[in-house]
Design a protein around this nucleic acid. Structure first.
Lengths: 343, 343
DNA sequence: TTCTCTACTGTGAACGCTCACAAACGCAGG
DNA sequence: CCTGCGTTTGTGAGCGTTCACAGTAGAGAA
């Protein structure tokens, strides 16, 4: 026998209570709640006053039940999470999306699909309409989730250019190729000609595009593209170090390295130091991402900044537009060369 | 008259459809969905088959509307996010909580309350019952959100011991004091006697407790606690470096430092090197957290591991128990000394 | 057989909201 | 004065579930 008076969980006010206090009907309150069209100024004001007085907050479950929308969107991660969660870029992205959505009063559901099991459960959850749309982060190609969601007609925006499917799915990405071009041009402008590259996995758009930009610029500049100067890493620090060792072995005359991520570049710096090469005197090193790692390394990395804040806000914008009925869209954002001490 | 056949967003199956296919009533399907008590094996099987056949997924909005529960949990951040999101510990925590909840099929809503405005909106959202409980991460004391939520009767579990309010609120924390004691004892066992400390902000439990452990062990060992050996940082790398410089200036004979976070310890290492002290020969350095920074620094840090995976799973367990009606509970988890090259 | 008890099953009502519809109310034009 | 029209308002129905309750069947005891 709880007597809910001052404290405790008393039943929250409903639209009915507001209507009674305002002296109008449910319908009018509902109209005010949803934009206030076809409501007289007097009623409008009365309702708003009643809402303030009662502390009314709309029950989203009841609303969703009838509208069919959930007024929430999912942030889906299909990567092995360990790696991604330690990626500072990812954190900026997650935070950016949360804030951009908060501005629309839309909560963000964080979903991790690590195992096959989780993947299935989450796909069911999403396709059942429990979110209105999905922000998808999954760099590797051949991700079955993206395809499933697309087929189910779920509004979807990917972060980074998807490799498999064509232009049927929205995405927001930094201009990887152009960023790579900027960096390699920068290295060329320093007089470097034996420029190595540690690229990312070739089943990721970043890996492919950054390598393509590298080759393009060299060709355009009339510099031979030497396959001995090309190695592949997996974006980890360790793979950067291993890559640098391989490069030095195959091309001891290397005078610069373009590394497809700052984390790998850190590994490259360590390996170079261990091999007795000075940076930037003997070898210039260019990174990619402008992550915190770039300023923490010694020397501080010259790198390519990805506009993560804009990427997140654009992802949200495109997704909301798509939920509103727009067609899928691709957004490519420019990168910026940040010059520091490693070149 | 739509003929929904193969493609398009056809209406998802309802409990009604399942009942029809299974040849039973809504009630029976509902009972199967909710644990299957008082249902005959035959009906049980028929319903499960019908669910598989129709691809039925429960409409959580309808369920929430009547049960009053939302079957979702909020993960609330009231810190200035920049700092926290770059903290590797925090990422482990977020991931751990998401996964622990996923095991219960409960989605996690990520909420950031950076500004005062957001704080208000989110408090309204939560108190309106849109989440069943809240996992709160906010180390600083005097956080008004915690108090508001507690008063509103929202199940709440904090990460780290809350400073303000007493034992009325649940929390899960590593044993900061004991961890600090282990580390200082370890330093003493190496023969060090002039042990400095760079502690965290004194309005955080970590700052206070780790300092307390340090002082306790020194006193117990009969070593004088010299206030010149005590400085305060803010958990940032830079503040660690500044702290080390201050310590060296005030107590040049220092032969060890206990640093309250690995990130600060990195700064300490750099400052010591710059001052010409060798680690660990001249000065032993002990960190706290066992974050990635601990193995990335040179030399690798001896540190105190916080059991973040267990912290997250315990937070979820305690919160679910509290939602189920249990009283608030405090859980203190043991830490582990990880010996590496800096001591 | 008949009664009782238990295990199971079906059925309205309700949750809080939106939507479509109808009613009411001006106000202008014939 | 009536008609027609546009704007504002009220009302009933229904979204898909769960819950309480009533009902049914089958087993065991008398």
């Amino acid at each position: 026998m709880t007597m809910s008076n001052t404290a405790g969980r008393r039943r929250p006010p409903t639209i009915h209570d507001v209507a009674r206090v305002a002296g109008v009907s449910r319908g009018t309150v509902s109209r005010v709640l949803n934009g206030g069209h076809h409501v007289s100024p007097a009623a409008q004001e009365a309702v708003n006053a009643a809402i303030r007085k009662t502390g009314y907050v709309v029950n989203r479950h009841a609303r969703s039940l009838i509208t069919g929308r959930s007024d929430s969107i999912g942030f889906l991660l299909t990567e092995p999470q360990e790696k991604l969660f330690e990626d500072p870029n990812f954190n900026v992205l997650l935070r950016g999306c949360t804030q951009a959505l908060a501005a629309h009063d839309i909560p963000l559901l964080l979903m991790l699909a690590g195992t096959e099991d989780e993947r299935r459960r989450i796909t069911r959850y999403i396709t059942a309409g429990h979110v209105d749309g999905v922000l998808l982060v999954s760099s590797h190609s051949g991700d079955p989730v993206a395809e499933e969601l697309r087929e189910a007609g779920v509004p979807l925006v990917q972060c980074g250019k998807p490799m498999g499917l064509g232009s049927k799915v929205s995405y927001v990405a930094a201009d990887d190729r152009d960023g790579a071009r900027d960096m390699v041009r920068h290295l060329l402008s320093l007089g470097r000609r034996r420029i190595g590259v540690v690229t990312g996995p070739l089943d990721t758009p970043g890996g492919v595009e950054r390598l393509a930009g590298y080759k393009e610029v060299l060709s355009e500049a009339g510099v031979e593209v030497d396959e001995r100067l090309v190695v592949t890493g997996d974006y980890s620090r360790a793979s950067g170090g291993a890559g640098a060792e391989r490069l030095l072995e195959r091309a001891p005359d290397m005078d610069a390295v373009f590394v497809a991520s700052d984390l790998m570049a850190q590994g490259v710096l360590t390996a170079l130091r261990r091999a007795g090469r000075r940076v930037p005197e003997d070898v210039s090193v260019g990174g990619f991402d402008d992550s915190p790692a770039a300023t923490e390394s010694a020397p501080a990395l010259t790198t390519i900044r990805q506009p993560w804040d804009r990427i997140s806000s654009e992802m949200v914008r495109v997704l909301l537009a798509q939920i509103g009925g727009d067609d899928p869209a691709a957004v490519i954002l420019p990168t910026v060369l940040v010059r520091r001490d490693s070149t």
